[in-house]
Design a protein around this nucleic acid. Structure first.
Length: 530
RNA sequence: GGCCCCUUCGUCUAGCGGUCUAGGACAUCGCCCUUUCACGGCGGCAACACGGGUUCGAGUCCCGUAGGGGUCACCA
């Protein structure tokens, strides 16, 4: 039998990074076996605009390259696949059949309790320190009782009639044999009075109807498994293989990573650094930085600032899985070859921004220049730095990318080199660098003015030529390299740091470079403020 | 609180009874390289939660304890 796995997001409008990891494991499992990966939308409780809230999630999957064989259409409005529809809100008829079946075979009953009444019981049990066991006193198991409860103005939900003794055991692919006492289980509601069904029922029915073979999800579902097994068995279904993944924990902590705790995470310096990096880039590209989506817990964040899917996937793969004692580098292809549930870890793994960044940096270095340039365009465009896609612009982008090399960790870092793309009179000058290297260094300025004359005489302006020129100059003046180079750098690039000086000169060209030196020296001699 | 899960360097992890004076990676520190920054090279610091067993021998098996976490909805 072919493997079929699924990821079942709620249409919340965002894709949680921990969810991505769960999805990745499911996707790998299906793809490596030539099986199918499905997306199913758990919108049983949703009254919002589903297709709209779904889009960011689908976009995330597309971006990461995790394609689905069955599920919603790309616009989030329809379904594709033989077991559809893939929206639980549209599958009521399947659930209805299941509910009736459960009612008929005595594994469920109509219950006329009011929520408040049960709540009282629950609190009493909790105070007494024991598990709440519903005595089924509002159970409408006969026509007479039903009529009587209805006469009181009560309406009925459908509850599971759970076993009250014995154990539920099952083999979890990650945790081994797992055991729960049936007596600790509740008579869970599976259908509301209005006829809509709840998650557990829907999930089990859908997994069966969609022929899911492996249910791979986060541990928080582990304790839900007995009731799902009960439903499945009561309905005569074969059980899927279960695998409960450890959750992704917060940076520097052990609690589950949550999108809602951004303020807390920002107190962690690594997490905060990542966030600040994102903000710096986003503020340039005009991206709205609302916390709903622009948050390192959400996958959109990474797309917006130019992370590479390969890096994110590689990092996430290793969050709870390893191949051996040393292999860390996995392309998607390699993941497909190596992944197995057997090597998934049991304990939670905390999200480490620094390590993510390290993977990002590594994958970025591997990306061909042409690809990088294509990715860089949108950033430069939305920041208003590059207006059109000309051959000239493309060449300059590639030249800057090549020169900047691994200084560019995320694609959005290209914006740090904006001065290479803008007009000479619009160069953004770093005030601190200007003060230190130019205005505050009279000798350097004099040397720079003199060196400017040498540069102007050059017939070739490539890196080798300007380097030789400076070396000769330094020698003839009897000075040291660093007595002039900083002033030169700041005047030409506007910044105190950057890539190779001579690469920078070559990229700008003679005319631009000389003009920038002139401008810089001029502003030193004027009032001194830039 | 009940039930369940988890526990090796700061972090991700390797380890499936002797090869562990515990390996790798990220981070960190030092040195080298160097026009700045980054990269790179070399080196350092750094962990088996605790207590009992079992065994000739335990990071590895068992039982406790402690800590952390998850879950207990007419949410998913």
């Amino acid at each position: 039998m072919s493997i079929r796995t699924r990821f079942a997001p709620s249409p919340t409008g965002y894709l949680h990074i921990g969810g991505v990891r769960t999805a990745l494991f499911n996707w790998l499992l299906a793809r490596q076996a030539g099986g199918q990966f499905l997306l199913r939308i758990d919108d049983t409780d949703s009254d919002r605009n589903v297709s709209e809230a779904l889009l960011p999630i689908l976009r995330g999957f597309q971006w990461l390259g995790m394609d689905w064989d069955e599920g919603p259409t790309e616009d989030g409005k329809g379904s594709v696949g033989a077991c559809g529809p893939y929206f639980q809100s549209q599958r009521g008829s399947y659930y209805q059949v299941a509910v009736e079946c459960l009612l008929a075979n005595g594994n469920a009953y109509r219950d006329y309790a009011r929520p408040e009444e049960l709540q009282v019981e629950r609190e009493i049990a909790e105070k007494a320190g024991r598990t709440f066991v519903y005595d089924r006193r509002w159970m409408g198991d006969t026509a007479e009782k039903q009529a009587a409860f209805q006469a009181e103005g009560r309406s009925a939900v459908v509850r599971l009639k759970m076993p009250r003794e014995g154990k539920c055991t099952f083999a979890d692919q990650i945790r081994g044999q797992v055991e729960f006492n049936w007596s600790d289980e509740q008579d869970h509601v599976i259908q509301r009075a209005d006829g809509t069904c709840l998650y557990h029922l829907a999930s089990v029915v859908d997994d069966h109807e969609m022929r899911i073979t492996h249910v791979v999800r986060a541990v928080e579902h582990l304790s839900n498994t007995p009731r799902q097994i009960f439903i499945a068995q009561s309905l005569g279904y074969d059980l899927p293989v279960y695998a409960h993944l450890p959750f992704v924990a917060e940076t520097g902590g052990t609690a589950k990573l949550s999108k809602r705790k951004l303020d807390k995470y920002l107190k962690n310096k690594d997490f905060s650094a990542l966030f600040v990096l994102g903000q710096r880039i986003a503020s340039r590209t005009g991206k709205q930085v609302d916390q709903e989506t622009f948050n390192p817990v959400i996958v959109d964040f990474y797309r917006e600032i130019g992370f590479l899917p390969a890096a994110i996937l590689n990092y996430l793969l290793l969050l709870g899985w390893s191949l051996d004692d040393s292999t860390e580098d996995f392309s998607v292809q390699q993941m497909l070859e190596s992944f197995s549930l057997a090597r998934v870890t049991k304990s939670p793994a905390s999200f480490d921004p620094q390590k993510l960044l390290a993977f990002q940096s590594r994958w970025m270095q591997r990306l061909p220049l042409e690809d990088k340039a294509l990715l860089a365009y949108p950033f430069l465009e939305s920041a208003g730095i590059v207006k059109e896609r000309t051959t000239e612009n493309l060449q300059r982008i590639q030249a800057v990318l090549a020169a900047a090399d691994d200084r560019i960790k995320v694609v959005g870092d290209i914006l740090d080199y904006e001065n290479f793309f803008i007009a000479d009179d619009l160069v953004v000058m770093d005030a601190e660098a200007f003060d230190k290297r130019l205005r505050g260094d009279v000798d350097a300025c004099q040397l720079l003015a003199k060196f400017r004359g040498k540069l102007a005489e050059l017939t070739s302006f490539d890196a080798a030529a300007t380097e030789k020129c400076l070396k000769d100059f330094v020698e003839s003046e009897g000075i040291k390299f660093n007595q002039i180079i900083h002033a030169l750098r700041v005047s030409v690039t506007g910044k105190a740091v950057g890539f190779g000086m001579f690469d920078a000169l070559a990229i700008l060209g003679s005319e631009s470079a000389l003009r920038r030196i002139d401008t810089a020296l001029l502003s030193v001699n004027s009032t001194g403020t830039t």
